[in-house]
Design a protein around this nucleic acid. Structure first.
Lengths: 205, 205
DNA sequence: CCGATACGGAACGGAACCGTATCGGAATCC
DNA sequence: GGATTCCGATACGGTTCCGTTCCGTATCGG
């Protein structure tokens, strides 16, 4: 998918001759994208000119690395999210709380970026595919593992519907932390625990 | 193009003299906005020119009615989502299933429009307020009522956290139907029932 | 040192929209 | 019939951004 190689700068090409691409410019461009989005620019309204200006970079320097805004955004997003949180293995409950407590809490910029991606994701099948593969699916898979292990150890019932359970666990937190769907939940301090406990009770043997 | 007889048309203004505004044009403009969004135009990318062209209307006809795109969009949105579904009162479970089964199913256009509003909602406090007051809050209130009645009749336990429960019930369906957050749920045919049953079990006395 | 490439910056022609103005014609009230 | 307002259409100047192409300079490998 995307190459994050750094020292030689960018692609796997045998770019031996001449001045190497500046990794500093590379980083500055990605940071500029995040900064602008965080400040309220929609993904769609992001202009290459604004990105270049913010990064202190010529537009040509951007086009030398990415074919267009979409490619740039993809690399920005993948870099932003990093790898999913990993469970520890104490108990199903502790692992779920651990995984869920970081939803929308790791990097505040991700919270700002995600809603801006929704129009693109809901419109373009390609954007949807990338979003699924790079962002949501890896995180769901981690949680599926926790639930499956719980089934294996007998902590959870054998006929548990893993997909529905994952969705029930993540969705309320995602919706609250991403778009603050219900502002009254702001005051609930043990939201994660409440959700996990209700779901675990609901699916108990 | 010949004009048919028109109703008195639009606002409560004392507009006695001259040709009245065409309610047909009014409707055509609102429909054009929805059509364009449904076809994949982002709210932000909506241009007055495109709306006018699609509606078969001059731009001046739009500006004569609304001061700008924001006002036009607001009226479009409020018209789109009509009043919330009302519960029947048989049982808590039946009412919840009734309310939840229409999430994202009433008007397919609403499903397309909502993700496009997320960037605006997450960026502008004013847009967030309107979105809450006009869209989400009235629907939550209906569901709160169902839960409160359940508490009153003893079907639900007395110390139920209504806000958290509402969020747990709606969020998974909302996320699935709006942005298809987890495509594996496509095949689950009794998703609504499963969610309601797990939650009700989880919060049982 | 030299050749090659990247750098930041500026300018380019072209496209899309903005919001306004103006047109001849149509609809309505007095 | 006459005054008034709205109609759809088109044109306008102004703005923003696109993606490309030039600069003159900086930085690498050989």
């Amino acid at each position: 998918m995307t190459e994050l190689a750094e020292l030689p700068a960018v692609p796997g090409a045998a770019r031996t001759q001449g001045r190497p691409r500046s990794s500093r410019a590379h980083e500055a461009i990605l940071e500029a994208v995040l900064d602008l989005i965080e400040e309220g620019t929609t993904v769609e309204a992001l202009s290459m000119e604004a990105i270049a200006a913010r990064a202190g970079v010529g537009k040509a320097t951007i086009y030398r690395r990415w074919a267009g805004k979409d490619e740039l955004l993809l690399e920005t997003l993948v870099k932003l999210k990093g790898p999913p949180t990993q469970p520890v293995g104490d108990s199903v409950r502790a692992d779920l709380i651990r995984l869920l407590s970081v939803v929308g809490q790791k990097d505040q910029r991700a919270v700002r970026v995600m809603p801006c991606l929704m129009p693109e994701v809901s419109r373009s099948p390609e954007a949807y595919r990338i979003w699924q593969e790079a962002i949501t699916e890896p995180r769901r898979e981690v949680m599926r593992d926790v639930l499956r292990r719980g089934v294996a150890t007998g902590e959870l019932r054998a006929d548990l519907d893993v997909e529905v359970t994952v969705s029930m666990l993540i969705s309320p937190l995602l919706l609250h932390r991403m778009v603050r769907w219900n502002p009254r939940l702001d005051d609930v301090d043990d939201l994660t625990e409440q959700i996990v406990d209700v779901v675990l009770r609901g699916v108990a043997a």
